[in-house]
């Protein structure tokens, strides 16, 4: 009896870390792992599918929708795809971000919406820049208002400001100030379960242009 109890206890403790994560968290952790390792459009599609499977099961969670949308945004930046393919990825991303926004209002989702618009703009900067840049900037401004410490909102805003400054041949000082704020916030950011933490290395890289 004693031995059995010991065994039972051992098994219990050995499996503790697994038990602590709900099936939802397990699935998300796995998908996020795949996300960080994805190297091709095919990989990313697999990741988007994984998030889609989670979101259809966990209909009250915004994070699977958020990440699925984000995955499509990244797929849309693929320059080798045709304009209509890229637009289709962004359309998908937009719908998912809107669904996420129904479940929750937060700075991350607002910033994501702006990111989608930024992607749409990148498909045809000459033709769409005029009308879409202010739409994207509006989203980033709103995201920063919702959470002034959201490094992603700051980083994306900095990218827009940098692009505009370059276009008008102006000083990039404003953009770089925003970028520095973003990097500061990234430094402070701690990994918090499943919450978004992406963008730091790219922001740090971009900061090199500011020196």
């Amino acid at each position: 009896m004693m031995r059995n109890l010991l065994l039972y206890t051992l098994i219990f403790f050995a499996t503790q870390p697994l038990l602590a994560q709900s099936p939802y968290e397990q699935a998300m952790t796995k998908a996020l792992q795949q996300f960080s390792e994805a190297e091709s459009i095919d990989n990313l599609q697999t990741v988007a599918n994984a998030f889609e499977r989670i979101s259809q099961k966990e209909t009250q969670e915004w994070l699977p929708l958020y990440y699925e949308s984000l995955t499509y945004v990244i797929m849309g930046f693929d320059n080798s795809a045709s304009i209509s393919e890229r637009d289709r990825y962004y359309k998908q991303a937009e719908e998912l971000a809107n669904k996420a926004a129904i479940l929750e209002t937060n700075s991350e989702i607002t910033a994501l919406k702006g990111y989608v618009v930024m992607g749409q703009l990148s498909v045809d900067p000459a033709g769409r820049g005029q009308s879409l840049s202010s739409v994207a900037i509006n989203y980033f401004q709103k995201a920063i208002e919702q959470n002034p410490g959201n490094p992603r909102a700051l980083f994306l805003m900095a990218q827009m400001e940098y692009g505009a400054a370059q276009f008008f041949g102006e000083s990039t000082e404003n953009a770089c100030a925003t970028l520095r704020k973003a990097v500061n916030q990234y430094e402070k950011e701690e990994s918090n379960a499943l919450m978004p933490i992406w963008g730091k290395s790219r922001a740090v890289n971009m900061l090199n242009q500011c020196k």
Binding site: P23, Q45, T46, N49, A50, E52, R53, Q56, K57
Partner: peptide, 18 residues
């Protein structure tokens, strides 16, 4: 390739290969 196949309301599923 890349189609999402799953059982509704579960985590079980996969993507189609190339």
């Amino acid at each position: 390739p890349g189609a999402n196949v799953y059982l509704k309301g579960t985590y079980d599923g996969a993507s189609s290969d190339e």
